[in-house]
Simulated assay, not measured.
Amino acid sequence: MNSQNNIEKIGEPALSPHKKLNSKESVSLNRKKKWKDAGLFSLFVGPVFLTFAVIVLIPFFTGVYYSFTDWNGVTGNVSWVGLDNFKYLFTEDKQFQASFLLTIKYTVVTIILTNGIGFGLALLVTQMLKTSNILRTVFFMPNLLGGLLLGFIWQFIFVKGFASIGQITGIPLFNLAWLGDQHTAFWGIVIVSVWQGAGYIMIIYIAALQNVPQELIEAAKIDGANRWEILRNITMPLVAPAVTICLFLTISSSFKVFDVNLSLTNGGPFKSTEMLALNIYTEAFVNNRYGLGEAKALIFFIVVAAISIIQVTYNKKKEVES
Rank of each mutant, 00 (worst) to 15 (best):
M1A: 12
Q4Y: 08
Q4V: 14
N5T: 09
K9Y: 08
G11Y: 12
E12P: 00
E12Y: 12
A14D: 06
L15K: 14
P17M: 14
H18Y: 15
K19M: 12
K19Q: 14
K20F: 00
K20P: 00
L21D: 12
L21Y: 12
E25F: 00
S26L: 14
V27I: 11
S28D: 10
R31F: 14
K32H: 03
K33W: 07
K33S: 14
K34H: 11
K34S: 12
W35M: 10
W35H: 10
G39D: 11
G39P: 13
F44G: 02
L50P: 06
F52R: 10
V56N: 04
F60H: 06
F60W: 02
T62Q: 11
V64Y: 02
Y66E: 04
S67Q: 04
F68P: 02
N72H: 07
G76M: 08
N77T: 03
W80D: 04
G82K: 03
L83P: 07
L89A: 04
F90D: 03
D93H: 13
L101W: 11
T103N: 07
T103R: 04
K105S: 09
Y106W: 11
V108A: 04
V108F: 09
I111T: 01
T114K: 08
G118H: 05
G120V: 12
L123W: 04
L124I: 09
L129W: 09
N133S: 12
I134A: 15
I134Y: 11
R136K: 15
M141L: 15
P142Y: 09
L145R: 06
L145D: 00
G146E: 10
F158V: 06
I165S: 13
I165L: 15
G166K: 06
G166E: 03
G166M: 07
A177F: 05
T184W: 05
W187A: 04
V192D: 01
V194D: 05
W195F: 07
Q196A: 03
G197Q: 07
G197H: 07
A208I: 05
Q210C: 01
Q214D: 09
I217W: 04
E218A: 15
A220L: 07
E229G: 04
R232P: 02
I234T: 04
M236A: 04
L238I: 13
A242G: 10
V243D: 03
T244A: 14
I245T: 13
L247V: 09
L249P: 03
T265Y: 02
N266E: 09
N266T: 05
G268V: 01
G268H: 05
P269L: 08
S272M: 13
L276A: 02
L278P: 05
L278H: 00
T282W: 02
T282S: 04
A284M: 13
F285P: 06
G291D: 10
G291A: 14
K296L: 06
A297T: 13
V303D: 07
V304Y: 05
Y314T: 11
Y314V: 10
K316S: 05
K316N: 08
K318C: 02
V320Q: 15
E321K: 14
